[in-house]
Computed example of a mutant assay.
Amino acid sequence: MKDIQTFAKQYQQEMGWDISDESYDKSRDSLLNNYMQLTTEVAEVAEELRKAFNLTASYVEEGMEEEQAFELAKNQIKENIGKELSDCLAYMLKFYNYFGIHVEDSFYAKMEEVKNRKNKDLVKPSK
């Protein structure tokens, strides 16, 4: 992740897409704009999931077994959902870089915090 974070910072600066730190007003506007763009990309991930579920239902209607239908649908959206997830990651990296947060350190610290929560779910989710 360190390499991806460094690449993202340089790339976003080259493209003029980094979050402004020129002044409070510009930073606020830039942060809000990037937040809205991130939420738009998250919605596009949801659209790809919806597409997969609709395709699955369609294939099942045509007589295909549900598991096989879902595998086929997942393969059909794989490229596009990968692109949308990459867009999400790019926007998230902007925030990490703007605030000077190291992605890996933050991620592992958060996962350790979650692991040690007292109020975590009793049943582990299925894979």
Rank of each mutant, 00 (worst) to 15 (best):
H102V: 08
Y96N: 09
Y59I: 03
K110G: 03
K124R: 08
E104P: 01
E71W: 03
L93I: 03
Q13A: 14
S20F: 03
A90N: 13
D87Q: 14
E84S: 09
T40R: 13
R28C: 07
Y108N: 09
K118W: 14
I101P: 00
I77C: 02
A52G: 02
S126E: 15
E112L: 12
I19E: 03
K124C: 07
E62R: 13
M111L: 15
K115W: 10
V45F: 05
D25R: 08
N116Y: 14
M64I: 08
L85A: 13
K94S: 08
N33I: 09
V114M: 11
A69W: 00
V103H: 02
Q68S: 13
E113Q: 15
V114E: 11
T56Q: 07
S58V: 07
I81L: 08
V45E: 00
L72N: 01
R117P: 00
T40S: 13
D21V: 08
D18C: 11
E84R: 05
G82V: 04
Y35R: 03
I77M: 06
V45H: 00
L72W: 01
G63T: 04
I101V: 13
L85W: 02
T6S: 14
A57C: 13
K127W: 05
E71Y: 03
N80Y: 08
E112K: 15
A57E: 10
L49M: 09
S86V: 06
Y35V: 03
E71S: 08
S20H: 05
K74T: 01
A46G: 07
K51M: 05
L93T: 00
A8N: 04
E113N: 14
L31Y: 01
Y96E: 04
T56M: 11
L122P: 01
Q13W: 05
Y91D: 02
K115H: 12
E65W: 06
A90P: 02
K127Q: 06
N80W: 02
K94C: 07
V123C: 13
K115D: 10
I101S: 04
E44S: 11
Y35W: 09
E47M: 12
R117I: 07
A46R: 06
C88F: 09
A46W: 04
L49H: 01
G16W: 06
Y91V: 01
V60H: 01
N34L: 02
R50A: 08
S58Q: 15
Y11H: 14
W17V: 02
M15A: 15
T40V: 14
F99C: 10
Y96L: 14
K120E: 10
V103E: 05
K94Q: 10
N34T: 04
L32V: 15
T40A: 12
I4R: 08
N119D: 15
H102P: 01
T39W: 05
I4M: 12
D29V: 09
G82T: 11
A57Q: 08
S20Y: 04
K83V: 03
I4P: 02
L31A: 07
L93Q: 01
E104H: 08
V123R: 14
M92A: 10
D3W: 07
N54P: 01
Y24M: 12
M36V: 12
Q12F: 05
K115G: 06
P125E: 06
I77W: 00
R50C: 07
